[in-house]
């Protein structure tokens, strides 16, 4: 019903009194967003299947809202309004409900972002080990404003890289670190940050030798087990 909602002026624009009047006059009952009729929403099959299979995993359908939003983000690169509407139609909830959920969580993007998502940890442990310099290097290489990247996240002009200063990613052992396309890398130097951006621009796998995966536990090789533990293994 509401495909036609393209208001000339958005409610959040800088509004004059006349704008406000025009905006009110342009609001029609069908512009509201109740639960979309499934038959009126076109959904890519693959997306629909993913959401439906998530819905089956839980005792209550709404539990699938996070998996559904992940599926939307996977499909479109970000949680597009249209994608949210599609998921809402499949789940039988309002798009507003899903948007509310999406905007609560840091990993869901409700505006377009670059192809590769780089989250640079700027929390205590990484900050103590030079995260600011690493973030600056990422930003410089990507050509984005570090302050903006640090506070709200921003993407490079060519659309290759999205950069965001992020709270603790749970990898203080490899501080300073970053999550690039959902894989962890660290400890990073500013130089490696610059290299990573270049590699991402050409869609290459970034700094493979800094990947967390496969890294051994801290504290050196397996010590001789405590006799009590050994006894427990018998």
């Amino acid at each position: 019903m509401s495909d036609g909602w393209v208001p000339e002026i958005k409610p959040t624009d800088d509004l004059s009194a006349a704008d406000r009047r025009r905006l009110v006059e342009s609001m029609r009952p069908e512009d509201a967003e109740p639960v979309p009729e499934l038959s009126e929403v076109d959904i890519p099959d693959e997306l629909r299947e993913r959401i439906e299979s998530a819905m089956q995993k839980y005792p209550e359908i709404r539990s699938a809202s996070l998996p559904a939003l992940w599926a939307v983000q996977r499909h479109y690169g970000w949680c597009t309004p249209e994608g949210i509407r599609q998921a809402a139609a499949v789940m039988g909830v309002t798009p507003g409900y899903l948007e509310s959920v999406a905007t609560f969580y840091d990993l869901f993007h409700t505006s377009p972002v670059g192809r590769h998502r780089v989250l640079v940890c700027h929390n205590l442990a990484c900050w103590l080990r030079g995260a600011e310099d690493v973030l600056d290097a990422f930003c410089e290489a990507a050509g984005v404003d570090p302050d903006e990247a640090d506070h709200i996240g921003t993407s490079s002009e060519d659309g290759a890289v999205y950069l965001r200063g992020f709270e603790c990613l749970g990898a203080c052992d490899i501080a300073p670190m970053a999550s690039i396309d959902e894989h962890y890398y660290g400890p990073l130097t500013p130089e490696e940050a610059r290299t990573a951006v270049e590699q991402l621009r050409s869609d290459a796998r970034p700094i493979p030798d800094k990947a967390l995966a496969g890294r051994e536990t801290a504290g050196g090789p397996e010590p001789e087990p405590d006799p009590r533990v050994k006894e427990g293994e018998a």
């Binding site: 509401s2 909602w5 208001p7 958005k10 409610p11 959040t12 609001m27 009952p29 512009d31 509201a32 967003e33 109740p34 639960v35 309004p81 949210i84 909830v93 309002t94 798009p95 507003g96 409900y97 899903l98 948007e99 509310s100 905007t103 609560f104």
Partner: peptide
């Protein structure tokens, strides 16, 4: 239970709004 009016964003940035800035008509 029209679920059109929602909290958006989080923490001190939270605000009351609707999906895609649409009107709340219920």
């Amino acid at each position: 239970e029209d679920e059109q009016l929602q909290l958006l964003e989080r923490g001190a940035s939270t605000f009351v709004g609707t999906f895609d800035d649409r009107p709340y008509i219920a």
